[in-house]
Design a protein around this nucleic acid. Structure first.
Length: 597
DNA sequence: ATACGAAGTG
């Protein structure tokens, strides 16, 4: 029965069968223990396995090859190098399997020298031996040695190819990975596809990741849970809700197993697409939740302006006995900041160390600077930066700068921007900000100086870019971009919107024209910000009443923010804009952020 | 022996 339980793949009940044996006065044999050990290895039960090892010693069994290999494999998998070595040294004879297990244990600890030594001294090697060495070098970032191993491997199989492709992906050599991927042709299995899809997601090429999935299907390779996790992550980044929902449907129809990782990917996708209720449904439906799931939902609630609920989730998490970590507090503190919960945020910040024993990092100080600054406590924020135990990074200063902008403290704003410029001279945003600041003060000479400095240093501003998904296709609009095939219609529609807004008394905030150095250079070629083009496109190409969802790479400007409110009212549409850091749910002329952002 | 998840800023 223990063997059956083991071979069923998940070995859920080997302990039950073991205690059953004892209850029925059946003395477990050496084979029983070998099987149990194997079960512990597969399910990663480190402590349980050790306990059984003690039991085996007590029983006084003679150690044979099978038992020793089992023990070695167990210690190798759970990462106990010392014990693995001890078992290994005690073996009178070491076959390929034993040697491979030892190599893998050494590789886990980064002992590449020792692993290589063992590998070189082996009289017999199989594909596992070679593949272990390939991954060992890959993990260490020594891709050239890994490639050498790959090239010398006389018994290359699909695992060797997958391992080296992943190695290239992880060492930022996508081109080399693509070359090998193409060379594989029909030898590619689902791991190969998962590797390349996840690489595209990691490189930020979300659209390519999705089209690779389509190609995977057309080549009849079965997508797995891992494929879905990568695709959902792509959807989360793109804010592509339709695609995300389609994937969720696919998971259900194919009966893929929603474990903590896939569950978390779904939660995160729905949150980042602004579909909180769907996210909560998945969250509550999970039978097991780990810290990733809790953190995702806490961050998601905060990001969508539901700070109180984020706090409630935090309390629920504690009740379940899950200990919060640094990420949890980033979520809670930023959630408090977005909802203006000043005192709650301060309380959690002090409890971090006091109650939870977590040392606040620079990211947590950043949250509190943000919290204080937004609420108008500029002096306090500045004082915190002065007294905090580490140097402020660009994010901390960025938060302060934002506060200066909201509360119109131009003097402090200039100081902070100068500091930011020194910290990050390659970041175009800093120059734009400083330039805007000078422009608003009519200091045109300073504007020119700033602009020249930018050109001299070869720095470029990130262009504003918004995307919207219509009929499963993600359309991207860069500010001033006229390349969309339907641009003429879009432009006409933008005029219509402008008229409608004028009728509602909207006065365009001309200060925003100065907000963008490149816009000035293009001399009025850009009439509108990217999110407006995207919303216009959405309004004209979707049926009345359908929610419009737009994702923007930068933060929305205040003019667009007020325009969106009016558009939502004039066209009777719910508009959800995800900007760089949070969501705005526009409905009936107002926004979920209550203009606090 | 290979593939997957959460984070503050302008």
């Amino acid at each position: 029965m223990i063997r059956v339980s083991l071979e069923s793949g998940v070995c859920p009940d080997f302990l039950g069968f073991y205690s059953g044996m004892l209850r029925n006065d059946v003395v477990p044999s050496k084979t029983s223990f070998s099987l149990i050990l194997r079960s512990c290895t597969i399910s990663g039960e480190a402590q349980l396995g050790e306990a059984f090892h003690c039991q085996i010693m007590k029983m006084g069994f003679e150690y044979d090859m099978i038992l020793q290999t089992g023990l070695l494999d167990f210690y190798a998998k759970v990462g106990d190098l010392k014990c693995a070595k001890r078992v290994f040294m005690g073996m009178p004879r070491r076959d390929v399997v034993a040697n491979n297990a030892m190599i893998s244990a050494l590789s886990k600890h980064g002992n590449v020298e020792e692993a290589r030594n063992l590998f070189d001294n082996m009289t017999e090697r199989n594909s596992c031996s070679w593949n272990s060495m390939i991954t060992c070098y890959c993990k260490l970032g020594d891709i050239n040695s890994a490639r050498l191993m790959f090239d010398c491997n006389p018994v290359k199989d699909v695992v060797s190819w997958n391992a080296i492709i992943d190695g290239y992906c992880k060492s930022k050599q996508l081109v080399a990975a693509q070359e090998l991927f193409l060379l594989m042709g029909s030898a590619r299995n689902s791991v190969t596809w998962n590797t390349i899809i996840s690489a595209y997601v990691q490189y930020g090429e979300f659209g390519t990741a999705i089209s690779m999935f389509q190609q995977m299907q057309s080549e009849n390779v079965k997508p797995t849970e891992v494929t879905m996790v990568s695709l959902l992550s792509a959807c989360a980044h793109l804010g592509a809700l339709d695609m995300g929902e389609w994937i969720h449907g696919y998971i259900r129809t194919k009966r893929l197993k929603i474990d903590v990782v896939l569950g978390n990917a779904l939660i995160d996708m729905y949150c980042k697409c602004g579909a909180l209720e769907a996210s909560l449904d998945v969250f509550h439906g999970l039978s097991r939740k780990n810290i990733f799931c809790w953190n995702s939902i806490i961050v998601g609630l905060g990001m969508n302006g539901r700070g109180e609920e984020a706090i409630a989730a935090f309390i629920a998490m504690e009740k379940e006995g899950i200990k919060p970590d640094g990420v949890t507090f980033v979520g809670i503190l930023s959630g408090c900041s977005h909802s203006g919960l000043l005192s709650a945020g301060q309380r959690y910040f002090s409890e971090m160390l006091g109650v939870y024993g977590l040392e606040p990092g620079v990211e947590h100080y950043g949250c509190i600077v943000d919290l204080l600054g937004r609420a108008g406590y500029l002096k306090e924020a500045l004082e915190l930066i002065r007294t905090m135990p580490m140097k402020p990074n660009s994010m901390v200063l960025g938060s302060l700068l934002r506060a200066c902008q909201i509360h119109k403290d131009t003097k402090l704003g200039e100081q902070v921007t100068q500091q930011l410029l020194e910290l990050d001279p390659c970041d175009g945003g800093n120059y734009v900000f400083l330039s805007n600041l000078y422009a608003s003060l009519n200091r045109w000479d300073d504007v020119t100086t700033c602009r020249k400095l930018m050109i001299k240093r070869g720095v470029h501003k990130t262009p504003g870019c918004s995307s919207i998904e219509v009929n499963n296709i993600v359309h991207e609009f860069v500010a001033g971009d006229t390349s969309h095939p339907q641009f003429t219609q879009i432009n006409a529609f933008l005029d219509e919107i402008a008229k409608e807004l004028k009728g509602q008394g909207h006065v365009p905030n001309t200060a925003n024209v100065l907000h963008d150095i490149e816009e000035e250079e293009k001399e009025g070629a850009i009439r509108y910000h990217s999110e407006r083009i995207a919303v216009a496109f959405g309004l004209m190409s979707t049926p009345p009443g359908k929610t419009i969802r737009v994702v923007k790479n930068l933060r929305t400007c205040s003019d667009c923010h007020s325009a969106m409110k009016l558009i939502s009212n004039a066209f009777k549409r719910e508009i959800i804009v995800r900007d760089r850091k949070r969501f705005h749910h526009f409905r009936n002329g107002s926004c979920s952020c209550n203009d606090y952002w």
